[in-house]
Write a protein that binds this DNA or RNA. Structure first.
Lengths: 231, 231
DNA sequence: CGGTTGTTTGAGGACGTTCAAGTACTGTGG
DNA sequence: CCACAGTACTTGAACGTCCTCAAACAACCG
């Protein structure tokens, strides 16, 4: 018995919600659900996918290791996320590795089962379209940030987005080191960016908690209203 | 009669190839094909999509304008590309604008027709999954480059990829200014990066043509260790 | 042919990284 | 509860990369 929990979480994930019971049943029959410790590597860059993974609880990070040994964090995904579906769909090697940042409940679906459902169940294919479309937009936003904003601006922008969901008090889920790499900067620069925004009165940071004090100031620091040349 | 050309190009695009004649007919019936001059703006950032666009011939660039006035080029797409499907699928505002870089033959499909086909024709939905998956991988690659490589390395990496398709002699389709912004650097840095790779003997550049002289040297300049073959 | 646009090159400066040192936090065993 | 080790975080200084500004040069198009 795989448990109602997995089904519920899949439905919450948005992908499951559109699926028939029969379809969900087939997916679940071809899968296993495990609770894995933090640090687990679900798959590695360059290998060919043998399964699709769904994060039911916890968090997983997409990382890529450069030749220099530097590890860049591409994105961090929370509960209800299908991981790296593109590689599974196309049967091509992963472009990134995936590591759990927390103990997580992960559903592993055999790749052939996943593809069979994609081909045979129109509603599943339709749901995957929406899912990929959403992820696409995430990545576009990140590329825009990386190409046109400075380090402090990227942090301000990210905080603004977080606060839209989490409210004025943001609890950082990852270490600042990881967050820094996700935002495309060094941990040191991240620390200085936090200090800069605090000095401006836009935020107040204590430990792993950030409180947004002045949204408009944060927005202007993000380059949305104008830049702060006064330094 | 919209012409065999549009149908042929759609089939070549990979999306059309999997579609029934009936399905293709419905898409074509809800669309118009135009030849538009270079510079045409197909849609603008922030607006809600009313149509899906397909580049049949020519090239279109996804651009985003920062408040600083700086225009960043997110990606450049050639023939057979469905543009910004995610926004159309989800009915959300575009995250970027689209401008034609050449005179181009563009097919414009009414958004409601596009969505109806997505919902009603499983094979279309399935084909869109593949298309989005491919684009997703493009973007992931770009994010990795931006986060972990320097300017010259990014150029080398891009040249390597281009040469995999175009061979040793690469004809730059865009001005260097546009290419520079696509790679996330200033035109001046682009020029210096070209000069650096030439000095190393990896390439030889004359005008808008780049010849790859030494693949392994180019690969090492890209931060790879000599590996050229890849998926 | 001159005007416009694209490209190269140089100098200076802003930004971010790295290196290095010091401080705070966390969990462990005494 | 404390001491301790290990890790995370901050801060400072030196350095390198890339951008901006500016000017010379080349290519294109009327």
């Amino acid at each position: 018995m795989l448990g109602r929990q997995a089904i519920d979480l899949l439905r919450e994930a948005g992908v499951g919600s559109a699926l028939s019971d029969a379809s969900l049943g087939r997916l679940l029959a071809g899968s296993i659900v495990q609770i894995l410790p933090a640090g687990t590597v679900l798959f590695e860059e360059g290998t060919v996918p043998e399964a699709a993974h769904v994060v039911l609880t916890g968090r997983a990070a997409l990382v890529s290791t450069a030749k220099s040994g530097q590890e860049t964090v591409i994105e961090i995904f929370g509960p209800g996320t299908f991981l790296l579906v593109p590689a599974v769909v196309l049967g091509l090697p992963y472009l990134a590795s995936c590591r759990l940042m927390q103990e997580s409940r992960v559903m592993t679906i055999r790749a052939d089962v996943f593809r069979a459902e994609l081909d045979g169940e129109p509603r599943f294919a339709r749901a995957v379209v929406d899912m990929l479309a959403g992820h696409w937009r995430l990545l576009i936003g990140q590329i825009k940030d990386l190409k046109s904003l400075g380090a402090t601006e990227r942090l301000a922008d990210w905080l603004l987005r977080e606060s839209e969901q989490a409210g004025d008090v943001i609890a950082l889920t990852e270490t600042k080191r990881v967050l820094a790499r996700r935002l495309g900067m060094s941990p040191e620069s991240f620390s200085r960016a936090i200090a800069a925004l605090s000095d401006q009165g836009a935020i107040a940071a204590t430990g792993r908690t950030v409180r947004v004090n002045d949204r408009s100031r944060l927005a202007s620091a993000a380059g949305r209203l104008g830049s702060i040349a006064g330094g």
